[in-house]
């Protein structure tokens, strides 16, 4: 029965990938990437149950953490053009 959930997740990942390729702006691509990452977390969890090794959930949790930090980092780069603390930061946008 986990196959049905897996197929749903994989179809969603394909759709997100299509949007990442089409996306007219860079923000569409980041949105699709973020969604792809969330689906990866779900996929790891479902696969863990499918093969009977629920310790995969630890990997899923780590992936969720890294996906969040990665999205924020890419956004910071897209917005300020640098990741360092010396990034030129418009005063009004803290």
């Amino acid at each position: 029965m986990f196959w049905a959930a897996m197929i749903g997740v994989i179809v969603t990942m394909v759709l997100a990938m299509i949007r990442a390729i089409l996306g007219p702006t860079v923000f569409d691509r980041i949105l699709a990437l973020n969604m792809f990452g969330t689906k990866t977390v779900l996929l790891i969890a479902v696969v863990g149950f499918l093969v009977g090794r629920p310790d995969f959930l630890d990997l899923a949790l780590i992936y969720a953490l890294m996906n969040f930090i990665g999205t924020i980092a890419i956004l910071k780069y897209a917005r300020f053009g640098s990741l360092g603390s010396d990034a030129k930061r418009p005063r009004s946008q803290l």
């Binding site: 969603t12 394909v14 759709l15 969604m35």
Partner: peptide, 23 residues
């Protein structure tokens, strides 16, 4: 098992709906 089945399938369905929405 049936409850779990229903939850998993509807979760997958909502994922696909969101994917269609993003397209």
């Amino acid at each position: 098992d049936i409850i779990s089945w229903v939850l998993l399938v509807s979760g997958g369905l909502f994922c696909i709906i969101g994917g269609i929405g993003i397209i």
